[in-house]
Design a protein around this nucleic acid. Sequence first.
DNA 1: CTCTTGCTTTCCAAAGCGGAAAGTGATTGA
DNA 2: TCAATCACTTTCCGCTTTGGAAAGCAAGAG
Lengths: 105, 105
Amino acid sequence: MSQPTTDGAKFDEIVHAPNRLQICALLVTADRAEFAAIRDSLGVADSVASKHLKVLADAGYVKLDKPQGEGRVRTWASLTKEGRRAFAGHVAELRRLAAGLDVQP
Amino acid sequence: MSQPTTDGAKFDEIVHAPNRLQICALLVTADRAEFAAIRDSLGVADSVASKHLKVLADAGYVKLDKPQGEGRVRTWASLTKEGRRAFAGHVAELRRLAAGLDVQP
DNA sequence: CTCTTGCTTTCCAAAGCGGAAAGTGATTGA
DNA sequence: TCAATCACTTTCCGCTTTGGAAAGCAAGAG
């Protein structure tokens, strides 16, 4: 009865960019990740990772936490509820586009 | 038992660009389409449609036919076997990225 | 032979991308 | 305490991509 994939299908350019798509994919499974882990996972320079995270953060899709407990401050990224919705919507749209491939797996 | 989606999963930048992704999606269902139909479906100018089709054609992903039968020559586009494979591979990769969303639908 | 159609190519400005390098603020080691 | 280091962030830079307008071009219509 539930059709979670065909609901808010909406192409999102912010999410679509390859590196940001990877970030979203990473965060949707990991729930949160350290800056360095994201950067290494993408295989890009610090600046690049930082800028893409900023784009996602400015869009309200990612929350950046810098918890100042003991030791150095590290940045943790996580998807916001809105980010999760945007990613899900984008994926839904991609699925819609890909629907013609075979029978839907 | 068959896993057609996890096979040649390969991110393809040529396919990934939004307009070209739409073209591929269109052609994978329609089998072939007229230039004007593609252009209108994308909602872009002639030149833009032409250039994207050229990129796909140069990559060997799309075949452009100009059958000169009766009347004016119109351009028909269709996916090549390689184009179909590239699109399928790209979609497989996107699915892999999106796998964390919920339970795989 | 000229006009229109159906693209293709060229020209242009705007935007996006990635890396290097410089900058910032906090922490840590001597 | 004070310079060095860490963990990013921002700026700078060159390059690529993108889209639309406009000019080109080949072929069929009138």
